[in-house]
Design a protein around this nucleic acid. Structure first.
Length: 892
RNA sequence: GCGGUUAUAGCUCAGUUGGUUAGAGCGCUACCUUGACAUGGUAGAGGUCCACAGUUCGAGUCUGUGUAACCGCACCA
């Protein structure tokens, strides 16, 4: 079968993916004798378009899934999509706006219907994108966060927590997004530095006995002030404590209180207290039982409590007006520039307002305690480990979780208020009547739950909980969670909490936290800055495997990754290299008969060339390294190791070494042996590559002479399972072949440096100093001649060095002088320069080695082998200098 | 303020337990269309491993201090 000379991902990826699907290779077995391996996919938003971060996240999980599947595990990779309350609702609201209407006009029921319709139509897009990435998820188990089963789980958890007193409804100061007109959680607030001012305002005492100056960054909130506070020990203000001040503009009288929250050193040492619009003031207000005046509407404008003048104004306008009025009344003392952190809504970017409102909360402290313990004890471990500290820190300062959102798209809170007795009923099923007063006048809460509430249950709600399913028995706790650090608090921590509370076990054993993808300049990729790359677009252009290799080869130790298309191009080239190496190999295997015992077949050791044994030895090292790297989540080490093997060992050397064997006249026994080695090693390389480049490898695999049914379900090569083949490798022979390679490199080096045309065939004398080198060179003479394009090659005495280029080569105790007569070939001057450069380099080594050997401390204290090695190196370097100097003398 | 991460070639990064001459890819220079691949090949140039101190016979690697950059968390109105 003929392969095109370039790998074309487009012709392969879709077909291969469909083939895997048709054959159900992604399916997990509910029960199996195989050990389980499970991953829950962090569900992307249904609205979403995958970004590169998703690609990385999914590629890691898929690499793990494929590796484990090949390693004999019963693999469950459970996919899902998230309803993403705010994001999805916004998309549909934008659609409505275009149609000249809005959700309020439509009404709740119709609107939610409309969102569902949207989801049915576009929700599949995100799944299609995941398939482009090659995700080998068990698609038959695809779950959506609003599916019936998941919704049941959500209700059960809500009701249980409520019955345990861990969910409560209360009037609290919460973070309010005026743009969304909804509460948001602490985590959804991003603090950004904003340049503002700090205004000093005069508050006259009510009894006219003086005035007090307060400092504030938000003058408009003074309309809701209910006290002025000073530090109890502040000598300047002792006489004011307990008196009243008259609030400018409103004339309201408010007390001066003492509270140690006030910092004497900051500003004027006097703080205006607005309990309804500041978290610290709220705390002070609670301590002093101050009244709370809410001056804001839900949309962020001022309400009637702010006074007729300001009612209806936006906060920014009100601030201006208040300052004008203060100025006019000469209440304003001074204005200073001041930068401070201002909370912004992570969804809309609007300024978040602390807002007094009735919301539902989860009491976190009792739930956090066991969730801390499982991480402290190592039942769950973070990879990299340093995230443990971040996690524990957050768990220590955790606040109650505000879970209600004033949206329509999501899990509606399963609580009803009875019109008869006003009691609140919380129930898993919609109640027909009030259990207390039997009234049928029940009204369900309007609010929905924070998206992350259902996400927190994901590891078990997706497996059929609360029913007791086989799936949970087999796969819970899951093996590993793969995610970015940005949702450790949003998601990871809350899953641990809920898993422990409802499954009495951790949701996963390991949390693998990977870095963030940045652009080539190191900036965070985002839609708004326009530097976000579209993975599907990149796949179109470079192929899914190339993209995956780029990401996996660079992800290490949880560090961020800088993405450049230049790098992507490099790995695209690598895919092509693999393709062409296969093309060449298959050509050489045209008359090769696949052995009956397939992958177990090995040639007789006596028929193997040195190159065969060298290659097999290197393969053994690779298999060991890759196995260890993958076990430690060192994807880049594994990917780079395979890359180097394929390119620098297999292609650059091995394929070159075996080329003559495929020419006519080669020894048939040797050819047969080499063909078998080639077929077996190619088979191993393709299998090793599969988790990192699934499409191209499966495509190639199907054309290999030695193969099974499908690569995706073949086994993953390790030294353990490849014992028979790897036993043919030899470290000793490998070292000998390295000498041959060094000799070839030396000849090429002399050629290059002396600018001898590649077409010019030259004569070389090789002068080994011991029998072992003599033997190995003799055995590989024809390879040396071909690969360095020689006319003649003598192996023996150094002979006359007059007008000769000379390069000493030594490796593992074997030594060879490479000698090339230059007479009539080139200008001798180049060789003089080349030799001098080499001598200089050697002299530097000799210098430091001499110093070291002269150091009595080194000789007596360093390990014996180290001293011996240094001594040997010194002698060898000196000998090489001798050789080169002799050659130099003969050149002049 | 508390915590974390990073600092190695022009760029992006490897360098596992301290041990010969610190590696790769890209970029750069020269040469090469040789029968797998120009998305290729061969050779080459390029590094005071952030600074200082310490431990050690020996430090890119371990310890401390400092500097710089990035990221969390908490924040003073």
């Amino acid at each position: 079968m003929e392969l095109p000379d370039r790998y074309s991902p487009k012709d392969v990826e879709g077909r291969i993916y469909q083939w895997w699907m048709d054959r159900h290779y992604f399916k997990a077995q509910e029960t199996s004798t195989k050990p389980p391996f499970s991953i829950i996919l962090p569900p992307p938003n249904v609205t979403g378009k995958l970004h590169l971060g998703h690609a990385l996240n999914h590629n890691i999980q898929d690499a793990l899934a494929r590796w484990k599947r090949m390693s004999g595990f019963n693999v469950l990779w459970l996919p899902g999509t998230d309803h993403a309350g705010i994001a999805t609702q916004s998309v549909v609201e934008r659609e409505l706006k275009k149609e000249g209407t809005n959700r309020h006009a439509l009404g709740r029921e119709k609107f939610v219907e409309r969102v569902w319709k949207w989801k049915e139509e576009y929700g599949g897009n995100i799944v299609d994108q995941m398939r482009r990435l090659g995700d080998s998820c068990d698609w038959d188990r695809l779950v959506f966060t609003l599916d019936e089963g998941v919704s049941k789980a959500v209700r059960k958890v809500f009701v249980d927590l409520h019955n345990k007193g861990l969910i409560y409804k209360g009037l609290r100061l919460i973070n309010w997004s005026p743009a969304l007109e909804s509460a948001i959680s602490d985590l959804e607030v991003d603090y950004k530095e904003v340049k503002g001012s700090i205004w000093h305002i005069r508050y006259p005492l009510a009894d006219g006995s003086g005035e007090i100056v307060v400092a504030t960054t938000r003058p408009e909130t003074m309309l809701g002030d209910t006290a002025v506070a000073v530090h109890p020990d502040d000598e300047r203000y002792q006489q004011w404590i307990g008196k009243e001040v008259q609030l400018p503009l409103t004339g309201r009288k408010i007390p001066v209180i003492a509270d140690s929250y006030v910092d004497k050193e900051f500003g004027s040492g006097v703080v205006k207290i607005t309990p309804a619009h500041d978290f610290n003031d709220y705390a002070v207000g609670q301590r002093h039982k101050l009244p709370m005046i809410n001056i804001l509407n839900k949309n962020g404008t001022l309400n009637e409590a702010a006074g007729a003048v300001y009612q209806g104004m936006k906060v920014a306008d009100a601030r201006k007006k208040v300052l004008e009025d203060l100025e006019a009344g000469s209440f304003l003392v001074k204005t200073e520039p001041h930068t401070h952190q201002v909370g912004h809504c992570s969804r809309t970017g609007c300024v978040v307002e602390p807002f007094l409102s009735e919301q539902w909360f989860v009491k976190m402290a009792p739930l956090a305690a066991p969730a801390k313990r499982v991480v402290e004890s190592g039942t769950i471990n973070f990879e990299p480990e340093s995230w443990t500290k971040t996690y524990l820190h957050w768990m220590n300062i955790i606040q109650d979780w505000c879970i209600s959102r004033q949206l329509w798209w999501g899990h509606r809170i399963p609580a009803w208020t009875c019109g008869g007795c006003q009691k609140i009923i919380v129930s898993e099923t919609d109640p027909a009547q009030c259990p207390h007063c039997k009234s049928k006048d029940l009204k369900q809460e309007e609010d929905v739950l924070d998206t992350w509430f259902s996400s927190a249950l994901w590891p078990f709600s997706t497996m059929g909980w609360p029913a007791d399913t086989e799936l949970q028995k087999t796969f819970y706790p899951t093996t590993v969670l793969v995610t970015g650090f940005d949702i450790i608090f949003f998601w990871v921590a809350r899953m641990i909490v809920m898993g422990l509370e409802f499954k009495k076990d951790v949701p996963f054993r390991t949390v693998y936290i990977h870095g963030v993808i940045r652009d080539a300049q190191g900036k965070k990729m985002s839609k708004s800055t326009g530097n976000a790359e579209d993975p599907v677009q990149l796949i179109e252009e470079y192929g899914s495997d190339a993209l995956r290799y780029t990401l996996l080869a660079q992800i290490a130790g949880g560090r961020d990754l800088k993405f450049s298309t230049q790098r992507l191009e490099g790995y695209r080239n690598f895919m092509n290299k693999i393709w062409n190496a296969t093309r060449f190999s298959l050509n050489g295997l045209k008359d090769f008969e696949a052995p009956a015992d397939g992958v177990e077949a090995v040639p007789n050791k006596v028929d193997l060339t040195d190159a065969d044994q060298w290659l097999i030895y290197k393969l053994g090292v690779l298999e060991k390294d890759v196995d260890e790297a993958l076990k430690d989540y060192r994807f880049s080490d594994a990917a780079n190791g395979i890359y180097a093997f394929v390119w620098n060992i297999f292609c650059d050397w091995y394929l070159e070494f075996i080329k003559p064997i495929f020419q006519e006249g080669a020894d048939p026994a040797q050819k047969k042996a080499t063909q078998l080695v080639l077929a077996q090693v190619l088979n191993r390389v393709i299998r090793l590559l599969h988790p990192f480049a699934p499409f191209i490898t499966e495509e190639i695999y199907q054309k290999l002479p030695i193969r099974g049914e499908a690569l995706i379900v073949d086994s993953y090569p390790t030294p353990k399972i490849d014992k028979t083949l790897l036993a043919l490798g030899s470290e000793e022979v490998a070292l000998e072949l390295d000498l041959v390679r060094e000799v070839i490199t030396a000849i090429r080096n002399i050629r290059g440096e002396n600018r001898i045309k590649p077409g010019t065939k030259i004569n070389v004398r090789l002068a080994p100093t011991e029998a072992r080198a003599q033997k190995i060179l003799g055995e590989n003479k024809s390879s040396i001649m071909t690969m360095s394009r020689l006319e003649t090659c003598e192996i023996g005495e150094a002979g006359n060095l007059a007008k000769c280029a000379v390069q000493p080569v030594q490796i593992g105790g074997m030594k060879v002088d490479v000698i090339i007569p230059l007479e009539g070939l080139v200008d001798i001057g180049e060789e003089v320069v080349r030799i001098r450069k080499n001598i200089e380099k050697l002299q530097k080594d000799v210098g430091s080695l001499t110093n070291r050997m002269a150091d009595a401390n080194f000789v007596s204290r360093a390990g014996e082998e180290v001293v011996a090695a240094s001594k040997r190196q010194l002698e060898e370097s000196q000998a090489q200098i001798g050789t080169l100097e002799a050659a130099l003398a003969r050149l002049m």
